[in-house]
Design a protein around this nucleic acid. Structure first.
Lengths: 242, 242
DNA sequence: CGCGGGATGGTGACAATGTCACCGACCACG
DNA sequence: CGTGGTCGGTGACATTGTCACCATCCCGCG
């Protein structure tokens, strides 16, 4: 189940170089919903939050690991996935730079055990807002409130999409979609068949067969732990086919 | 796709008999998270909300039908489901009496088109809180805020469960579970095979075969549009089997 | 260097579920 | 009574998931 070498999950505070550079913190402007906050709110936000660095592989939140901060991602991405009782896993969504990890909030506020866990996929730099500050800001700043609710809304929309795809989607279309998404940079996807299976909540064998079919058609080329996309056009067409 | 006779979805205000009965409205105490609100907050809540009645079949929210109230259900239930592009449908969860329909809030605040829609399954009586009041209360009352976030959290948990079941669950276990849930009162489930298929996001034929198997084992008895549970013990055992 | 041992991927047989086409029984309504 | 629409049953087939097993590759270690 490819659980890569976890650190202990501790957040390392490295706020020194990004805080108190005169005026409001520069990171605020990286969040669309926050840049128009009134200055005093920005100050509260800046003063009582910390910029933290999290190494790749860290469990940001999960069963038995309840965080006490709201995280706003500055760099990197957090993969949120769920593991069934039988040990099978599916990726629900990713939190990217510029987004907030509101599920930690829900976790926080609901005192409920979530089945989902969030893992830093890359080294992550994020702003950590303590619960008290979060509460204060939600109360005082309507714009901050909007920011939070919008973030929630986005996640719920994501979950709707996942339900729809898992319940009604065809595996070849879903795989094509995921390959295209994961190869954002070049035409390369660095992932094992097992990892792709986890992305889609299916079995490795299914992925292997689909990839072979794609290769047979000349759309991709496979290496160990690596896939090269040779024909994004056809993959895109498949993804978008009814 | 069994869309039963919709009214036009208008909310009929029938607040007269449940409002202003001296002191705070009696309905507040039906909501665990609200009963301990300070009196002035309760007053705001009571004064600026309406008790509405919604006939069964009404589309409470959905694509192209964005509500401007947060609904707190007093009686009845709202079924929230999603329809795929190809017209297949799956039930995501239900909002029951004593719960709030927070998705309308997300809808409200996110200005985003949700794929999901909520339909009154029975005649529904609910408290409608206008957006402005909602905003005001979230800002002023920490307990109200908790109430809202807890409600969100519950829905997200529900969605996690749905994803898990759809992705990894076996259809016979899911069907047994649903039959037991839907027969809360007696040992009867009033539903067609098609409706049960929609509950689980699968095809009617699959349900028909499973029900036949259940019947063959003597666990249930079938009539047109109606299923009698004769052996809850075995159904429960199946539901809970690994 | 050679030798495990784990990770990765390939394969065939089979099971479970979904899709399609079609049919007959039932029911509401004129 | 008809008759049209809903409901449920059925067989053939496609897709996806499960299981068992194997070959190859990679990497660390004696």
């Amino acid at each position: 189940m490819t659980r890569n070498g976890d650190t202990d999950g501790t957040l390392h505070a490295t706020n020194a170089h990004l805080r108190g550079r005169g005026g409001s913190a520069p990171w605020i402007d990286r969040f669309a919903g926050l840049s128009r906050l009134p200055d005093d709110i920005k100050k509260t936000l800046t003063d009582s939050s910390q910029v933290v660095s999290v190494p790749a592989g860290t469990v940001v939140f999960g069963p038995g690991h309840i965080p006490d901060n709201l995280l706003l991602l500055l760099e990197g991405s957090v993969r949120v996935s769920q593991t069934s009782e039988q040990g099978r896993e599916i990726v629900l969504y990713r939190v990217e730079a510029g987004q907030s990890c509101v599920l930690t909030t829900a976790c926080l506020l609901a005192h409920e055990a979530y089945a989902a866990e969030g893992i830093a996929e890359t080294d992550v730099k994020a702003v950590a807002i303590p619960r008290a500050t979060f509460d204060d800001l939600v109360s005082r700043a309507p714009l901050f409130r909007d920011f939070v609710f919008t973030a929630y809304s986005r996640r719920i929309t994501d979950l709707f999409r996942v339900v729809d795809e898992v319940a009604f989607g065809r595996i070849d279309m879903r795989l094509a979609e995921r390959l295209l998404t994961l190869s954002r940079d070049g035409d390369e996807v660095k992932a094992t068949h097992q990892q792709l299976a986890t992305e889609l909540g299916t079995a490795r064998e299914v992925i292997s067969r689909q990839l072979q079919e794609f290769q047979r058609r000349g759309w991709i080329e496979q290496e160990r732990g690596r896939i090269l996309l040779h024909d994004r056009k056809h993959l895109t067409a498949l993804r978008d086919s009814l």
